[in-house]
C-alpha cells in the first residue's frame, strides 16, 4: 500500500517501515521534484554564453576544479533555508523533519558522486554490503566530501544493538547558529542526519537518523547523529556472519 503514492524521497527501501511513510505529505511532495529543465534550456539557447562559462554538468566528475565552497556564502544560504523552513512548520519536530528531508536530497547525490569517484578508478570496484565498513566510510569519506574533515567519533550504543552514533565536535553548519532557549531541543544538524540517512538508504541499510545536541564543556556545539537501523538490516548482518 505504500506504493500508492510516490515517495517524496524516491526511496524504495524505506517503504517497508511505517515511520518513513509519515514523511509523506501530499501538499509538499511536488517540492521534491528535480528542477533540471530550465538550466538545460538556457545552456542550449545562449550558445555563446555556454562557451564562455562551461555548464556545471560538463565538468569532469573525477577532478573537481574548485574543491571548496565559500563557508560564509553557505552559512547565509543555510540560515535562509532554516528561516524559510521555520515559517512553514508548526513545532520543532516538524522543522527537524523538513531539514532532514532537505538533507536527504543532498545525501543521495553525495553517495552517487562518492561511489563514482572512489570506485571508478579502482581496479576491483566493489559494492560495500557490510554494515561496519559502511558506517566507517560515512564517518570518514562522506564527512570529508561534505564538510572537508572526518567526523570526530563513531560509537555503538550500549543499550540498543540497532543504534550507532556519529559524533561531530564542531559541526560546520551550526558554527554561526545560536538556537534560542525556548527551542533548545532543536538541532539544525537534522540536515546532516538527512544526508546520513540518504547514504545509508542508498547503500541498502534503511535507518531512521536523527540529530541531538550533546554539548560538553570543551565543545559547546557537539552534536550526535543517532542512527537507528531497521530490523531487517541486523537480521541480514547475522546471516552474512555465518
Amino acid at each position: 500500500m505504500a506504493y500508492s503514492q510516490p515517495h517524496p524521497r524516491l526511496s524504495v527501501l524505506s517503504n517497508s517501515s511505517l515511520s518513513s511513510v509519515e514523511h509523506l505529505s501530499p501538499t509538499t511532495s511536488s517540492r521534491y521534484s528535480i528542477p533540471s529543465a530550465p538550466s538545460i534550456n538556457t545552456a542550449l539557447g545562449t550558445n555563446k554564453q555556454a562557451l564562455s562559462r562551461p555548464n556545471i554538468y560538463d565538468r569532469n566528475l573525477n577532478k573537481p576544479r574548485v574543491t571548496d565552497v565559500s563557508g560564509a556564502a553557505f552559512s547565509f544560504l543555510f540560515s535562509e533555508i532554516v528561516q524559510y523552513t521555520q515559517k512553514r512548520v508548526s513545532g520543532i519536530n516538524d522543522l527537524e523533519r523538513r531539514l532532514n528531508t532537505l538533507g536527504y536530497r543532498i545525501g543521495t547525490r553525495v553517495l552517487e558522486l562518492m561511489v563514482w569517484r572512489a570506485e571508478s578508478s579502482s581496479k576491483t570496484p566493489k559494492r560495500e554490503i557490510r554494515l561496519l565498513p559502511s558506517l566507517m566510510s560515512i564517518h570518514t569519506q562522506v564527512w570529508r566530501a561534505v564538510f572537508g574533515k572526518p567526523a570526530d567519533a563513531i560509537e555503538k550504543s550500549v543499550e540498543n544493538a540497532d543504534e550507532y552514533m556519529i559524533i561531530d565536535n564542531d559541526p560546520s553548519i551550526e558554527r554561526h547558529i545560536s538556537v534560542p532557549k525556548d527551542m533548545s531541543q532543536l538541532s539544525c544538524s537534522s540536515f546532516t542526519a538527512g544526508i546520513v540517512e540518504a547514504v545509508l538508504d542508498g547503500l541498502g541499510f534503511p535507518a531512521r537518523v536523527t540529530a541531538h545536541n550533546t554539548p560538553t564543556a570543551q565543545f559547546p556545539t557537539r552534536t550526535t547523529i543517532l542512527i537507528k537501523l531497521e530490523k531487517s538490516v541486523l537480521e541480514r548482518e547475522e546471516l552474512l556472519k555465518q
Binding site: A72, S79, E80, I81, V82, Q83, H176, I177, S178, C188
Partner: peptide, 16 residues
Amino acid sequence: MKNPFHTPEMPIRSEG
C-alpha cells in the same frame, strides 16, 4: 547575520 533565529533590526539575543 548568519544566525537564522535573528530578526534583522531587532534586539540581538544571540549566545554566539
